[in-house]
Design a protein around this nucleic acid. Structure first.
Length: 206
DNA sequence: TGCCAGGCCCTCTTTAGGGCCTT
């Protein structure tokens, strides 16, 4: 069962680099099991410093909202429990992985499960998409959206839809009986032009 | 306030450079 279960998550942050002092300001996540969303997590978190006007405009999250939010430490303790035992997915996962690991480190905890990247998978499954930004893929594939972007739970929900759409796409194209987290994760290590042959070999093996 | 990164991937490549993607 676990190989068909994953937490799809998204951070809003003060900037691009935790190594230069940037912090998480919101976490949103959905737990999917067999392509169904079965649980959700969302919280703003107070980063202990003011955010720039650019981030306020980009996310719609204001300094006033964050001043009333629980501390990052408190939220991350709860989130660590939410993700415990589950594989993880994010769009451009190298970004969210750095922030997750940095925020967990601040509370003396460590990530124990693997990350998969929906962007790297999408580049291989939808090579002809106009771009592989989350917003563009959602539009290109006609995925359901409430029009809200750059908020953590909304982006996590759309990434989950993208993830399940990709599972459906390769199931249908290659007649795979099942598509696990490990299979989608493994695509990132396969050269783009080798992906069709790779998936055909997987299908034969099933 | 504005700045800061880093991994992937393509090509006019591999003794490199630059666009994409995340906030």
């Amino acid at each position: 069962m676990e190989k068909f279960t994953a937490v799809i998550l998204d951070f809003e942050t003060t900037g691009l680099s935790p190594g230069y002092g940037d912090r998480a300001i919101e976490i949103g996540a959905v737990l999917i099991r067999n392509n169904q969303v079965v649980d959700r997590f969302q919280s703003l978190m107070n980063p202990g410093k003011r955010i720039s006007g650019f981030i306020e405009d980009y996310t719609g999250i204001t300094n006033e909202m964050l001043s009333k939010a629980p501390s990052a430490a408190h939220v991350m303790e709860q989130f660590a429990s939410f993700i415990a035992g589950h594989n993880l997915v994010a769009h451009n996962a190298s970004f969210d992985r750095r922030f997750l690991d940095a925020e967990l480190s601040r509370i003396g905890r460590t990530r124990t499960r693997e990350f998969a990247c929906s962007m790297l998978a999408a580049r291989r499954i939808y090579p002809d998409a106009p771009s592989h930004r989350l917003e563009t893929l959602v539009s290109h594939l006609g995925l359901q959206t409430d029009g809200l972007f750059h908020r953590a739970l909304a982006d996590a929900e759309m990434t989950a839809q993208l993830w399940t759409a990709m599972i459906g796409e390769i199931k249908g194209t290659y007649r795979l009986k099942e598509v696990s987290f490990d299979l989608l994760q493994s695509l990132a290590g396969v050269a783009k032009r080798a992906v069709p042959a790779y998936l055909e070999r997987v299908a034969v093996g099933q």
